Computed example of a mutant assay.
Amino acid sequence: MAHELDGKKVAIMAADGVERCELEAPRGALYGAGAQADVISIHDGEIQARHWDFKEAGSFPVDKMVGEARVEDYDALFLPGGTMNPDQLRMNRDAVNWVRSFVETGKPVAALCHGPWTLVEADVVRGHRFTSWPSIRTDLRNAGAEVVDQEVCIDGQFTTSRSPMDLPAFCLAIVDQFAGQKTSVMA
């Protein structure tokens, strides 16, 4: 990875309770490939990070609030996990509408662990294949997605992974996908 994402701008939609490593490692991979990545949230200031949901793990500055961010300004969207983070996002009408509008552009979208919960709420998973943290797989199925248990799943514009343990493969996959290199679905 060197300059695959030069000139690309990625929206990272996150709220309080984001799993620290799930935001930090992919954002580092995006930066390393030359992308600009903005943390977009439902409030300004900082979002509080967690480690395995239970332990406080610092904070991340918010670059833009969802009401200020324009879908057309971004080339890709990344939804990190942590249980509390996507649970808050899916309860916020502006965040859900923003995510739905972004998906409608056809641009690449990546979600990790519990991150697909916001995609479920936006009603954009039907007919697509996803992987996720085990506890939200029923929600994905009920929303019409095909669920698989694999390290990285790529289906059209969507790239998903199960957990922080999948971060090395996930980071490589999102750089490829966001660069427009159509990698096949990985088993």
Rank of each mutant, 00 (worst) to 15 (best):
107 K>N: 11
70 R>K: 15
79 L>D: 06
142 N>K: 14
112 L>Q: 09
86 P>D: 01
177 Q>A: 14
141 R>E: 15
23 L>F: 14
149 D>I: 06
106 G>C: 08
64 K>H: 15
49 A>K: 02
126 R>G: 11
120 V>W: 05
176 D>L: 13
56 E>G: 06
127 G>R: 10
137 R>E: 02
124 V>M: 14
80 P>M: 13
162 R>W: 02
75 D>V: 00
42 I>D: 12
23 L>K: 07
41 S>L: 06
24 E>T: 14
186 M>K: 12
129 R>L: 09
135 S>R: 01
58 G>P: 04
90 R>V: 01
101 S>L: 01
171 C>H: 03
25 A>W: 10
112 L>D: 09
119 L>F: 11
42 I>G: 09
9 K>P: 05
120 V>G: 08
115 G>T: 00
66 V>I: 15
125 V>N: 09
187 A>V: 11
116 P>C: 11
5 L>Y: 03
135 S>T: 13
166 D>A: 03
180 G>A: 03
80 P>G: 13
11 A>T: 01
106 G>I: 04
65 M>I: 11
69 A>N: 09
47 I>A: 07
140 L>I: 02
145 A>Y: 05
93 R>Q: 14
136 I>M: 12
169 A>W: 03
187 A>Y: 05
140 L>V: 02
38 D>R: 06
14 A>Y: 06
181 Q>S: 11
153 C>N: 15
179 A>W: 11
52 W>C: 01
67 G>S: 13
129 R>Q: 04
38 D>I: 06
134 P>R: 02
162 R>Y: 04
107 K>I: 04
75 D>A: 10
139 D>K: 05
25 A>T: 11
8 K>N: 00
1 M>N: 10
